[in-house]
Design a protein around this nucleic acid. Sequence first.
DNA 1: CGCGCCATTGACTCTGGTCAACGCTAGTGG
DNA 2: CCACTAGCGTTGACCAGAGTCAATGGCGCG
Lengths: 244, 244
Amino acid sequence: MQLVEDHCAKTGQDCAHGRTACADCKVRLHSICAALEQDELHALEALSHPTRYGARATLFSQDEPADSVFNVTEGMVRLYKLLPDGRRQIVGFALPGDFLGLALMDRFGVSAEAVGDVSVCRFQRKGFAAYIDTKPHLLRRLHEFAGHELSLAQDQMVLLGRRSAEERVASFLVGLRERLARIGQKSVTLALPMSRQDIADFLGLTIETVSRTMTRLARDKAILIVPDGVRLLRPEHLEAIAAR
Amino acid sequence: MQLVEDHCAKTGQDCAHGRTACADCKVRLHSICAALEQDELHALEALSHPTRYGARATLFSQDEPADSVFNVTEGMVRLYKLLPDGRRQIVGFALPGDFLGLALMDRFGVSAEAVGDVSVCRFQRKGFAAYIDTKPHLLRRLHEFAGHELSLAQDQMVLLGRRSAEERVASFLVGLRERLARIGQKSVTLALPMSRQDIADFLGLTIETVSRTMTRLARDKAILIVPDGVRLLRPEHLEAIAAR
DNA sequence: CGCGCCATTGACTCTGGTCAACGCTAGTGG
DNA sequence: CCACTAGCGTTGACCAGAGTCAATGGCGCG
């Protein structure tokens, strides 16, 4: 962990000293790192700056030069775009294993904020890009991730363009459960660390409509609203509403 | 062009015999092919199946195995997703230079139809993927394209989630003009080969709302509606409405 | 000439937005 | 320990932007 501490000292970031090494990383197999051999993992680890962010901290902002890219290891990140008048559209919630900045472009196209406490592996973009150029299969992996992101984005376009409020909320809950299940957090009780406003800005609705719709789903015994989350009582019913 | 003819015979596709070679390709510099050296271009050309599609022809359908990938060289392609009940969301219009199937996934996530007559370079996905594995800079180029696609998708999410009908239409017109300008078709008169229904399904509106909104913009002298297109009389006004 | 398709326009409806009140909980300070 | 406050979520009443339904117009094609 020598290098990690060096990085922390150099960058002045709030690093996670004593963090487990990549070899023990809980999300490695769900992240781009799954494409790496033992020695490559070490090489990448040498480039990584493990970093923690408190709730509501900004990881980066739209249009700002993209000096870093990030591998989320813990927590949830909201990705959003703002219109000049302040309207906000959340384009996604990043979960452990997700990669931020995978377009590798000069500037960030979105802003990113920690929802709750968040841990990431941060990389200098230039160094990361240089490393990638020596490891085509890592670029291939990154490209797979981009393809997956694009697919999620297209699903979200359908949701925003063509679905009713109830369909949006049901689809959101079912979709989040699926994503959590894929990274090993299977559960009928879904934690919703983000605010109602976040959900509304993700679904293209208002906070009131989200609230009313969840209340209606709860009244119909499809979900049970619990503190900071919901229990999916009839997931199959939600899937039917979501119509996927 | 021997190979092309062989391919045509083998596949039974409606190929463009006598098509210009890649070296003369008008959209090469706007396509992934711009990343290629002379010899690489020849190698890729050997893998390509130049193909033409008539208006409303299907290039591929959602969930179908992705045997081919495509480089659009001429015309416009609509990319869409359908909900089980028939609601449609168009997730994009592909223009010359655009690449279809860049996720390189096993199955297509969207359906693709020719709007008018369309020419493409088609590739067997497996052969294309194999070639790419030998040319990391081509994968890099493909990844850049994916990043750009993702960025467009995120802009569209903002449009669908947070913009009014008038903003959507103005944004659509301005955005299409920009894309055409980037591939060398600068003009204040914008061809709209797609139907009103297509525009509506792209913007998350109904055909009536698109029609009314365009009529209002025309009444305000911001645009002039001409057969199969519009003339942008006050592009700066449209940009102001689009609020970008 | 007549048919069919697409676009436009009008009248009316309705889903979801707006505005406002209220309640619950956590944090603060007396 | 409890009053007070701030922030978030819920609920209600009302409103408006976009959808629905229907009629009409224009154009291309047989």
